[in-house]
Amino acid sequence: MQTKVFGVEGMSCGHCQQAVEAAALAVTGVQKATVQLEDKTLTVTYDESNFQVVELVAAIEDAGFEMGQS
């Protein structure tokens, strides 16, 4: 398992937090997703053999947020 922190722009409330976490958890290989709303970050724990960052970026952007690596 690996853990990585990503910056996510566009989050402003608890609903945003839940939407980003749900989108991340729907990505193949993601085991845990935690948003720190104050820091505008998403911490993801994933199985490196079954995970692609591009899929995570697409899922977060499809949910209406902008993602970059923190």
Rank of each mutant, 00 (worst) to 15 (best):
Q2V: 15
T3D: 02
K4T: 12
K4L: 10
V5Q: 13
V5D: 08
F6G: 05
F6V: 10
F6L: 05
V8C: 04
V8Y: 05
E9S: 06
E9R: 10
G10I: 04
G10C: 03
G10Y: 04
M11C: 02
M11P: 03
S12M: 02
S12K: 04
S12D: 06
C13E: 03
H15K: 13
C16W: 07
C16G: 08
C16R: 08
Q17K: 15
Q18M: 15
A19K: 14
V20Q: 05
V20W: 03
E21P: 05
A22P: 03
A23I: 12
A23Q: 11
A23S: 11
L25V: 02
A26D: 13
A26C: 03
V27H: 03
T28S: 13
Q31C: 02
K32I: 01
K32M: 04
A33F: 09
A33G: 05
A33E: 10
T34G: 04
T34Q: 13
T34A: 12
Q36R: 11
Q36N: 15
Q36A: 13
L37M: 04
D39P: 00
D39K: 14
K40M: 11
T41S: 11
T41W: 09
L42C: 01
T43R: 13
V44I: 14
Y46E: 07
Y46D: 05
D47I: 09
E48A: 14
E48Q: 11
E48S: 14
S49H: 10
S49F: 02
F51S: 07
F51A: 06
F51E: 08
Q52Y: 07
V53Q: 12
V53E: 13
V53A: 07
V53H: 02
V53L: 12
V54F: 13
V54P: 00
V57L: 10
A58F: 05
I60G: 04
I60C: 03
E61K: 06
E61G: 08
D62I: 09
D62V: 09
A63S: 07
A63T: 10
G64D: 09
F65A: 03
F65S: 01
F65E: 00
F65C: 00
E66R: 11
E66V: 09
M67R: 03
M67C: 00
G68H: 12
G68E: 12
G68L: 05
S70L: 14
